[in-house]
Structure formats: C-alpha cells, structure tokens
Amino acid sequence: MRIDPDLLAEASTWRQSFHAQPELGFAEHNTSARVAELLQGFGLKVHRGLGGTGVVGTLERGDGLVIGLRADMDALPIQELGQCAHRSRHEGRMHACGHDGHTAMLLAAARHLSGLDTFRGTVHFIFQPAEENLGGARKMIEDGLFQRFPMDAVYGLHNWPGLPAGQVAVNPGAMMASLDTFEITLTGQGCHAAMPERGADPIMAGAQLITALQSIVSRRLSPLDSAVVSITQLSAGEAINVIPEKALLRGTVRCLQTPVRERVQQLIGELAEQVPAPFGVRGELAYQVGYPVTENHPDAAAGLFRAAVAVLGEANVRWGCPPSMASEDFAFMLQACPGAYFWLGVDGETPSRALHNPWYDFNDQVIEAGVKVWTELVEQSLPRR
C-alpha cells in the first residue's frame, strides 16, 4: 500500500501545529475547528458539538456496513520541558500523551480514504474530546453518538512507548485496566498530642487501614486475578501538637476483569468500616466508578490483526500482548458497540519518552504506519465495489 509522501508531510505539519497549540479536555475549540475545516475540505459530511467539542466526519460510499475510527484531541496540564521547534506555546499545557499524533493520523486516513472508491459502506471519523480523566467518550455517547451514527464496529488506537516504531499490538480481550477512585473519611476524636488516651486517633487508624487495603490484592484475591490498589493521598491535622479529629485517604483501583473490580470495591467498603472501629474511629467510603476495562471484542480484534499484518507484515504485529494497568475511556465505546483498540509502537533508534512525561514528543515517523492500518482496516471491513 502506498500513501502519498506529500500527504504524510502534511500530516506531520498538522501534528506539530496541534502540538504547539494544546488545549485541555472539553476546551479543544481551536483544535476541533481545525479538524472540522480539514474534514470539510476532504469532502466529508461534518458534525460538530457531540461531547461539547467533539467532531464526526462521515465518508459515505453507498449502502453497506458502517464502522467508526476514533482519535482523541485533548492535551494535559503539564509544563513542556522539551525544546523542539513546535513546543507548546501555552504555559502549563502540552501534548504529553500523543493525542496530537492520533488526530493527525486519523485526518490523514480520512484524506486518503476520501480519494478511494474501492469499498462500499460508511466510515465515521470520530474526534473525541477529554480522554484524560474527564470521560469525553462517555459524554459523546450520552450526546447520542451511536444513535445518530449507528455503527457495526468502532476502533481506536494509542501510540505506545516501549514498542518499536511502526509495530502494532492487539489482544482478543483486555488491553487496559478499569479505573475507579475512592475517598475514605476517618472520624475520631481530637485531643492534645501529649494525652492520646483522651481521644480517638484517626491517623493511627489510617495507618492500619492503608496496610489492610494493600492486603486485598495479596491475600483476598486469587494470584490469577489482576488488580492494583494504590493510596495516593493522606491528609490530616493542622497543628504539630494536636491529634486531629479527621483524616482523609484517597486512592485508585485498577482491574482487568469486571468481577474482580466489583469484588475489590466490596472489600474496600468492608475494610473502611471494620479496621478503624477498634480505634474508636468511624470510616466512611465514597467510591467513584470510573473508566471500565478496555476490552476488545474477539472478532473485531482478529479483523484488526489481519489488517495490520497485511500492511506491516506478521513480524510487526503482536497478538496476545500483556495488558496495561493504565486506563482509557475508549472503553465506554467498546461497551456500547463491538470493536477493538490497539497500540502503535513509537520507539525509534532512541526510545520514546514515557507518556505523560514533560519531555515527550510524538514520533512522526509512525504516521505512515497508522494511516496504512486505518486504510486497510476500512478496506477489509467494508465490501469491495
């Protein structure tokens, strides 16, 4: 498969422009306007406003199956430290996760496919806001994404440091973990630090509770189950000589299986109530269910695998890779519609910086591989004319 080198160069220019002008979740106004402008220039029907700043470009080639291809557009609240020519022009914001590259690749695929007349059916190019922690995929779905644009399958990708540039990894099941957050309020009785017997110490109870919460994975789940429970914040007290009345614990839960996720939530609730009680402290849990497991549908994953092998070669496509305990809100789309999600490697001669790193910059050399996989997936998924 040949992709026009001029298109690839243009896609790199788009990508670097997006990188220089990052916008945070649900505030991607300039990015979405530029995306819509380009899609209209390719001759696609353009729909704006889903999920606030979301854009859907539709390419119709007669009756047939309908598939969706998704890219995320938002940046992160991180100060960029790299010194590339296209570094962020906005203080405290940068594309540290490669969504600029995802957007540019999908735009290039839309442009390339708009010039083909080899398939029959419809492709929806979905440009999603607010993937980073804000659930933009869920918002687009709530705004009627799959009702207004019914699809037989939907697909997404993420660039992946640690995987060689241009290689693809895809699983027939879980790719990434669920993400939930929790907050436990411990209420005791404040007192003078010199007379702890006159109070009920929520910090002592919190210390015991933190240890107990870590035993969920090590002692309450099967070693074959996958879960991570992390306490990320502990706050209590104002004066150095006072045992406070309250302490607050916050943390996250990540799992690769939905039943395990439900079990961990139950156990956190039990421990939050039971462990502080002997200290005369009351524990109250507030649990926020967040992103589900990003779990591929096996048939869709197999189709994606075949498309990637066709354009990249079998040696460059990994099937059945270890999932990541990071999370991705494309999971909501996979709950609503069959589909699959894959990783595209970005490590060149020099390994890529990690995602969410202030030195990260997307590797433009993989744009061609991404466009080829998207194009081949469309041509294999939709019947030929």
Rank of each mutant, 00 (worst) to 15 (best):
A307E: 05
I367S: 02
I184N: 08
T185L: 15
R263W: 10
I240Y: 08
L234Q: 13
A165N: 03
S381T: 07
L382Q: 06
R254L: 06
Q365C: 09
L81I: 04
A20T: 11
M176Q: 10
A227L: 02
G173F: 04
T181Y: 15
L213Y: 04
V293L: 08
G57D: 00
A247L: 04
F332D: 00
P202Y: 11
G190T: 09
H356G: 02
S218L: 08
Q16R: 11
G320L: 00
R87K: 03
Q167L: 08
A369H: 12
A193E: 07
A110F: 06
R198P: 00
Q167S: 08
N357E: 11
A11P: 09
G280Q: 12
V293N: 15
A169V: 14
L334N: 11
D117C: 04
A75S: 13
P278N: 05
E131K: 00
P278S: 03
R148E: 15
G269V: 03
R219I: 12
E314T: 14
A307K: 10
P278C: 01
E295M: 05
V217A: 14
A27T: 12
N316P: 03
Q16G: 00
Y341S: 01
V311E: 10
R353S: 00
G92C: 09
E37L: 12
H29K: 11
A137D: 03
